[in-house]
């Protein structure tokens, strides 16, 4: 598993970092910490406030493990060629993490595009980022960044709005295809939070759709085979927004928004952002 953490210097990024750390502790995923700044924002490579934040996130993350338990312990020394200026390279001795990859990167330009490009080029399976509470969803002082990332990413996205323990995951599905990857991300989240899982079938047109019911049974069987108890229920698609707005403080809202999802077919693209914004706490968009 490869996780991309996009962090800025605001407090919600520290909350998101906690989620990243917990997930990495379980999964030993390859991890990239990404900072984004406007082109020309600083005469040096990184603006001081962002540099400080990235240093803090790196140290917090790496110090979360005790001694030799860390798969990210810096133990792998090797020589690498680094660019000094145009047409000049220098061989430098660098130290890299041992068992699993850990790297800190900086991109410049439009924040949402930078995050999406990094995830695409790095082959990320999950993007984690924080944002402000409420419907505005600010990231690095700009509105709409988390919504755009959630709407346009090829992989799953976890948006962390505040530091809350998660005791229940509300996973909303429709009758269409559920990718193996989305189930796997959901399973890792259930395992990490030791959370109760409730799968909500979203009925697109009123009345009981046979396909929604069939999907719920399949999901129920999948988890029964793995000894995991889940609750299921069906709601109308018109009620989805009010359900999201009414979720509890310790709920993680998980939305299947894959390419073949009826949720993304029925709702225009910005609806993903709207649902994400309506979420009270953390939101997982699954692909």
């Amino acid at each position: 598993m490869r996780i991309l953490f996009a962090g800025d210097e605001h407090p919600y990024s520290a909350f998101a970092l906690k989620e990243l750390t917990r997930l990495a502790m379980n999964t030993w995923a390859d991890v990239t910490l990404l900072g984004v700044q406007a082109a020309g924002a600083s005469p040096g490579p990184v603006a001081p406030a962002l540099n400080l934040a990235l240093n803090r996130y790196r140290e917090t993350f790496l110090n979360s493990w005790e001694g030799e338990d860390s798969p990210y312990a810096m133990s792998n020394w090797q020589y690498e060629w680094s660019p000094v200026k145009e047409n000049l390279w220098e061989e430098r001795l660098v130290c890299k993490s041992g068992k699993k990859c850990f790297q800190v990167r900086l991109r410049t330009g439009n924040p949402a595009a930078a995050i999406l490009n990094e995830a695409r080029e790095d082959g990320s399976d999950l993007i984690i980022l924080g944002c402000t509470r409420g419907t505005e969803c600010l990231w690095a002082g700009a509105s709409g960044v988390p919504q755009k990332v959630a709407a346009d990413a090829d992989c799953s996205v976890l948006l962390v709005k505040e530091d809350q323990p998660i005791s229940r995951i509300l996973a909303c599905l429709d009758q269409t295809y559920i990718s193996q990857e989305s189930l796997e991300i959901l399973n890792q989240m259930v395992t990490m939070h030791q959370a109760e899982l409730e799968v909500i079938g979203v009925n697109p047109e009123g009345g009981l759709k046979k396909e929604v019911y069939t999907r719920l049974i399949e999901i129920g069987d999948y988890y029964q085979d793995r000894g995991i108890k889940i609750n299921t229920r069906i709601i109308e698609i018109a009620d989805l927004e009010s359900l999201i707005a009414a979720e509890g403080q310790q709920d993680l809202l998980a939305l299947w928004m894959g390419k073949k999802s009826i949720l993304s077919r029925f709702f225009p693209r910005d609806w993903v952002g709207r649902l994400v914004a309506r979420g009270q706490t953390s939101v997982l968009v699954m692909r």
Partner: peptide, 19 residues
């Protein structure tokens, strides 16, 4: 499970999903 796997001598431990 990650720690136990390495104690048992596995080469690597990969969480799903993976590319």
């Amino acid at each position: 499970t990650a720690k136990e796997s390495f104690k048992k001598g596995v080469f690597d431990f990969i969480a799903k999903p993976f590319n």
